[in-house]
Design a protein around this nucleic acid. Structure first.
Length: 323
RNA sequence: GCCUUUGUAGCUCAAUGGUAGAGCACACCCUUGAAACGGGUGGGACGGCGGUUCGAUUCCUCCCAAAGGCA
């Protein structure tokens, strides 16, 4: 019997985790979060970890991070790093692969759940250049250069790569800098493109996407933002600051966090923050859909369809029981 | 009632006697070690009726609206 991996993806607030828990209960599953912000410790309310009260991160093997338990189901992939630190896809991929292998080895069923499309794609299809490390010196040198200068430099180093850039990315400093970084690395290392680590070849993967009409999602987002205020997002932000996290940290750029700076330091009201936060989430949901829509391997379910749960579960069971 | 100022995109503001730009918002799209990040493209406006002028968003009259001041 081949190893199986279930993916549950989709825009924010479509109930991905709660569906995953339901399925996990029936099939001895364990959840692996694919969310670029839930990787940070302390950031629970704003990132929607929805953990039961008093639950604690359990660490048996530090190479796997640790897991929380919700309704008896293990959730991995949370709290991988301190909010003062940096994080990137590359780190996520390493640890996610270890977690998935470990779950599978123990005979349990891994369910990859999240809204960060890049992370999911990376885990399953791999990222060729993920092993090319960040080069802070280079990045510093390139800081402040115009996009034209950056593009020129990239063309000199790797004309093929430069040619593949579309009109949007030609003007995207971040992508240009990264491409230059890779090109330079490959020059010095003489093309050590390591065999990329992928899940796709070793696992039978089923991708499920959850969606809903836009108005439904938008309404839910507004409700959820208010809910997070009630749960104490303001205190959470204060605690982060107390623990030494600054507004400049990568983690604080997350939706629902950075916004509060204008509240704590400026004269923006709580209502204004909430409105902006909801607006950010709505836009984000849109971007997520744009991203996921392109993957034709995803089977979509509308969560407002009364038959939705029955349909998903029967599809998953059928797939799971195939040899 | 009188005087002054103002009226340009959903919002905040430019410029100009030859039919208008920006930022934010919105829509659509892109994304391979920051991805809840970063980037591209697009639609959308001169308060109203007249007058002067070859031509008015720009100058003038009146009307309407807003803000401030004087009574």
């Amino acid at each position: 019997m081949t190893k199986k991996l279930l993916v549950i993806c989709g825009p924010t607030s479509t109930g991905k985790t709660s569906l995953a828990i339901k399925i996990a209960k029936k099939l001895n599953g364990e959840i692996v979060s694919a969310d670029s912000r839930q990787v940070y410790k302390i950031m629970n309310i704003g990132t929607g970890k929805d953990l039961p009260v008093n639950s604690k991160l359990i660490i048996n093997n530090s190479k796997l991070g640790g897991y929380y338990e919700a309704e008896g189901i293990k959730i991995w992939g949370y709290d991988l790093v301190d909010p003062k630190g940096e994080f990137s896809v590359a780190q996520y991929l390493k640890i996610a692969h270890r977690i998935i292998d470990d779950i599978s080895k123990r005979g349990a069923f891994p369910i990859l759940v999240g809204g960060t499309g890049l992370y999911i794609r990376g885990v399953i299809d791999g990222i060729d250049t993920a092993d090319v490390p960040k080069n802070n010196k280079l990045r510093k040198n390139l800081e402040g250069k115009s996009v034209n200068e950056l593009y020129e430099k990239l063309s000199q180093l790797d004309s093929l790569k430069a040619g593949s850039f579309n009109s949007s990315d030609k003007k995207n400093p971040r992508r240009l800098v990264r491409a230059i970084e890779i090109a330079q690395y490959q020059l010095t290392k003489k093309f050590v493109t390591s065999a990329r680590h992928t899940i796709g070849n070793n696992f039978d993967v089923l991708r499920i996407g959850l969606t809903a009409p836009k108005e439904f999602i938008d309404r839910r987002i507004v409700k959820r933002v208010i809910d997070r205020l009630d749960k104490g997002i303001k205190t959470e932000v204060e605690n982060l600051l107390k623990s030494g996290v600054t507004w400049e940290n990568q983690a604080m750029m997350a939706m629902g966090y950075g916004l509060w700076r204008d509240y704590f330091e400026g004269d923006v009201t709580e209502d204004q923050i909430l409105a902006e936060w909801a607006r950010d989430e709505v836009r984000y949901a849109k971007r997520q859909m744009v991203w996921f829509k392109k993957d034709r391997r995803i089977t979509w379910f509308d969560i407002t369809d009364p038959e939705f749960l029955i349909n998903v579960e029967s599809l998953v069971k059928k797939w799971y029981n195939q040899a």
